[in-house]
Structures are given as C-alpha cells and as structure tokens.
Design a protein around this nucleic acid. Sequence first.
RNA 1: GGAGGGGUGCCGGAGUGGUUAAUCGGAGCAGACUGUAAAUCUGCCGCCCUAAGGGCUACGCAGGUUCGAAUCCUGCCCCCUCCA
Length: 414
Amino acid sequence: MKNDEKSITNQDINRLLRRGVAEIIVEEEMIELLRSGKKLRLKEGFDPSFSDIHLGHMVSLRKLRQFQELGHQVVLIVADWTAQIGDPSGVSVTRPMLSVEQVMANAETYMQQFFKVVDKDKTEVRWQSEWFDKFTLTEVIQLTSKFTVAQLLARDDFSARYNDGRPIALTEFLYPLLQAYDSVAIEADVEFGGTDQKFNLLLGREYQNMMGQRPQQCFMTPLLVGTDGSQKMSKSLGNYIGVAEPPNEIYGKVMSIPDSLILQYFELVTDVPDEELGEFKQGLKDESINPMILKKHLAREIVSPLYSQKEATEAEENFTKVFQKREVPEEIEEYHLSFSEFAPDLTQPVNIDISRLLVKIGLAKSRSEANRFIAQAGTTIAGETVTSHLAEVQSGSIIKVGKRRFAKVINTDK
RNA sequence: GGAGGGGUGCCGGAGUGGUUAAUCGGAGCAGACUGUAAAUCUGCCGCCCUAAGGGCUACGCAGGUUCGAAUCCUGCCCCCUCCA
C-alpha cells in the first residue's frame, strides 16, 4: 500500500494522535479506522448560547482541520436544543431560553469564526432541531429509559454536586442523552471534545451501540489554561483570547499569559514542530532564552494564521512601541468635541474638567472612576501627568489612561 | 405533606441593632519595578457634587419597630437539602 492515496503514514498518525491530545477512546480502534481508508464522520458540537470562539476551542478545531487534510468529513452540530438546557458543568442551572433569532445570530457568528480554522468545504452543518423538533414524548421516554440515574451520577461533575447537596436540575440529565442521540442521528465515527466532555462522549458511544451502530471514537483534547494561568479558558471567567479579536488584542493577551504557560500554548495552538519546542523547553530551563522573547514568538504564531503574517508583525510592532517603549500607538481614536462644554468657566487659559472629559470619551466608566485615575496618577495629557481635576488641554492632544488606553481629542469650538 | 437551611457588592463569602459603602479572598483597575499586558510589591476598587468636604443609593421584595437596621418584627417572592 505504498503509493495508495488513502494510505496513512505512521508519521501522520503520530501527528494526529499524539500532539495536543489528552485521551482517545479507543486508541487502537482509532488507528484501525484511520488505516481503513474510510472517510470518517467527525462530530463536533457547539452550543449556540455563546458565539465566540477562543483559543481554548482552537485546540480541537485544529485537530479537525488536520483530519480534514487527510480527507475526512467534519459534521458540525448546532446544538440549538441542548443550549436551552445549559451545560451542566456550569454553576448556574437556569439559563434563559434563547430566542430563535438569537440562536441564528450566534450560529452565524460562530461559523464565521469556525471556518477561520476548519475547512468549510469538508464540513456538513446540522442542527439539532432537524431531529429534535419532531420528537414526541414517546421518543423522549424511549431515550431516557435506556439509561439509569446511577449511570448519570457516574459523571464526576454530577456526583460531586449530588454529594455536596448542590442542586442538579432534571433537564441537566437530559443534556448528555440528547448529545448521545446526536451521534446516532448523524452516524458519527469520531466525536471531538475537551476532556471535560468525556462522559458525554462515552454516552454517545454507548447509545450508538444500543442502536446498532458502530460506537464512535472519543477524541479528547486537553483544556487550555486561560490567561489567568490557573483556570481553563472560558468566556465566563474572562480569561479568554477570542479568535475574532483584533490582532493587537490577541497579541497583547498572549503576552499577558504567565510565563509558565508558554510551552503549553506552543504545543496546543501552534504548528511549531516538536523539536523546536524541545529547544525552547531547554532554553527556558537553563535561562538561555528570555521568556519575553519566546512569548513574542508565540504571539506571532497565534496571530498569523488567524490574520496574516503582516498583521502579526504589525501587532508586534505595536506592542513594542506601546508597552516596551511606552510610546503612543500609530492609530488612536479621535474624538471631536466642544471643549467649552467641559470648562467650568471660560476664562483664559481654558481649564477643562478632566474627569468629565474622560467619561465622555469612554476612557472611564464613571466620574468616580475618572477621579481615581487622576488621584492614582494614571492619566496623562500630551505626556504630562494630570495632577488636578482641572487642566489645560490643547486641541489634538493625546490623552492616556493607564498603560493602554488612548484617545485624541479635537476641539470643535470656533 | 412534614422538617430544616438560605437569598449580601462582578464572583466567592463574612457580618445578627450603632464607629458598616459594609471583614476577607478572587477578579478588575492604577502606580512602582521590569527587555512581557509575566512575576513581585503598593494602592484603589457603588454613584453624584466638590478645593477641602458633603450628598445619595445599597445587603431578595413590601411594610413596621427604633434616635439608629444588612442585622429585630410582619407579610410576600424565590432557591436548596432531608424525611415521606
């Protein structure tokens, strides 16, 4: 099978199944499937109660892409039904039901970002409502009768809550069941997910088996730690780096991860070869590489594929300029306003109420906050630190709050 | 049906009549330091007016007691656990 197009090399298998993978159930079966030359149906679900993809999701999306490059088919499931239940891993059980419009809008945004990484031509998009809208109570009962409470409590997340006396909504039990049904509905060969999805993935496997299908492989990717350096990346924790964010933001956020996360990020969300990673590891260990330099490299590697090489370089230049040299960025938002509006009295020279101005141009949320910035010497106008509440401002001056918020004000008077 | 527990600021979680805008932790923000928006240290961290100083709103909701309530009383709403 040397020159057979369908053949897969050991190198491919290694790349596919080793790096950026937490666990595969069952690995031998997975390898067998890959070797069989069959075009595999790869299931990936997404909950449309959110719409933004972050780097944490990238770990498995990048895997999907790699599989696609070998000719396999991705089936993206828009989980419009389970979204109404809410993923049980969260603390809050009750989630507001999303309107159809909201779901549609989220799905659209999501897919836009999804296809930045995953090949659209090799992706089939399916909605849960295709099959669940037609569900009758009979079918719900049939589905639920296949599983026991003990089985569901086996999920550590459920059992932990149960043992702590914390609530578990009945609908939450339904969540994994519906997800399992999806696998049957689309005849998945492999389902992807983070390690926190293990239970759900396994249940799909089990249900398929009951329904006479070949049980899917469960392909679990590690959970990426967020910018806080301790918890998994998630939007609700606010420690995420969104793929739709502007290059400067992504670059900057990558620079804000703790140094200890550098290697993990390289491994999970870049294509930098393993050998190089080994060198980095050694370099960090014997301190021959400055972590900051390495992190800049990482930031470039992350921004480039999402945007372009050029934009990555620009983001880097911006970072160097603004944060390392403490200079003013290239592009600053301009605000045209009447200065006299902010002057308590119009004697010359005109002194402007700075806190009022900061609120007006959005650099501060409230006047109290603006006053704090001033008191903490965190405000600069044309390079001069603001020390009192009233200060002279020239038209065209650049106002800076903190390290990274800038605005240019233009006087529209006269 | 019965018994019990609970609803506090972005989150977690103290506080049971006064000096409590409310301990503490996390998050966030500012400053210092730094070749990083790393780490570390210091400070800030409801809103409004202000030069200082002051005012207003806030501890599920609505009333009440009191000079004074997140804290006591009454009613209501909501959440959780256990027994059946």
